[in-house]
Design a protein around this nucleic acid. Structure first.
Lengths: 189, 189
DNA sequence: ACAGAGTACGAACGATCGTGCTATCTTGTC
DNA sequence: GACAAGATAGCACGATCGTTCGTACTCTGT
């Protein structure tokens, strides 16, 4: 199952083939096929598994931080960590899947859009909590900031996939901090 | 040729098949194949054509603006325009191609990375010019701002592909302006 | 001991993939 | 009008695609 996710981040959800998955798992094509019933169901199960992995490797570590600004930074850092760690060998599963399936209406696209919506809502909630705790300027627009952070995340993923340069992730981290008004300085007086 | 680009934004550069292109053009498979010599060359020619279209539809309109901050805003707006206009039916060609080919080393990935590099350099140059003209805060980091604007562009594309909501592009426009310190207010005193 | 469910297998299907080979047709040049 | 050059078509190839079918083998409950 994790193997399906790995193959999908390398070849796309459409490029993920039952034959490839079978040989990667040392099984027969029909054995794999009987498990899922159709390619669509394979894709749905793969997205499900990717959600589980993303939840465990990115979201849950971030939720351990203190609510508010700390969680906001933590979720971004956890995202950059999972890129660096190459949790998915082809970069962020959902960034790739969103662009690939965006033009293919159906349940798979719906599931991806739903997950992206939940992630966006989570970040928005972190921002609102930070606002309530006066950790962000009072005139900050939650929707706009959510959009910007989403953009930083996507830029980090795209640049990292294309160039595999860890400096990209350092840049992303520092941009997030500057944007959120966090002084990354060395405890200067 | 434009047809190849259209198909590639819908099915990806790998999903773009000679058979599909042939039937879309009412030609025979071997007729198409003889034109290019191999699928790789078809892909390279498709990326070339996409560059030409992007240059004509996004970059050249932006270059008409006054150098500096105006060009910076213009290139972002032109990008959002080409999304709205659906110049490529499946969203930004290069955003999709970068994620798809990022894990496939070879000349096609190289060409896409090179174009993305030129685009980034162009935006960076606009920022530097704006700095020289004191249209941006003097302590603004060109690299960081380039990264952020790239992120806003990618967020606009991803959200628009996934939801097809024009409000996404309005949001992107307003985020760009706020980030660059442009007062979008109604000439209030 | 036996029926039934679950799991995996091998073989085959029609379709499509990228790629060759050969023939036809158009076009420009002498 | 003859002829080389280039473009397009037809056909076939081996491979792979998703899918189906029939068949084993391993459990589990009675």
């Amino acid at each position: 199952m994790r193997e399906a996710v790995s193959l999908a981040t390398l070849d796309g959800l459409e490029g993920l083939s039952i034959g490839n998955l079978a040989s990667a798992l040392d099984m027969s094509k029909s054995g794999i096929y009987a498990h899922f019933g159709s390619k669509r169901d394979l894709q749905l199960a793969t997205v499900n598994e990717a959600e589980r992995i993303f939840q465990a490797e990115v979201l849950e570590p971030a939720l351990a931080a203190a609510p508010g600004l700390a969680q906001l930074v933590a979720v971004c850092d956890a995202y950059f960590d999972h890129l660096m760690r190459r949790t998915f060998p082809g970069g962020c599963f959902f960034a790739g899947a969103a662009l690939e399936m965006g033009t293919r209406p159906g349940p798979v696209k719906e599931q991806i859009a739903a997950f992206q919506g939940r992630l966006t809502a989570l970040i928005r909630q972190f921002i609102i909590t930070a606002l309530e705790q006066h950790e962000l300027p009072a005139d900050e627009d939650p929707n706009a900031l959510t959009f910007e952070l989403n953009g930083i995340i996507l830029a980090a993923n795209t640049n990292f996939v294309l160039r595999a340069d860890p400096a990209t992730l350092d840049m992303a981290r520092s941009v997030v901090r500057r944007r959120l008004g966090i002084t990354t300085a060395t405890t200067a007086c």
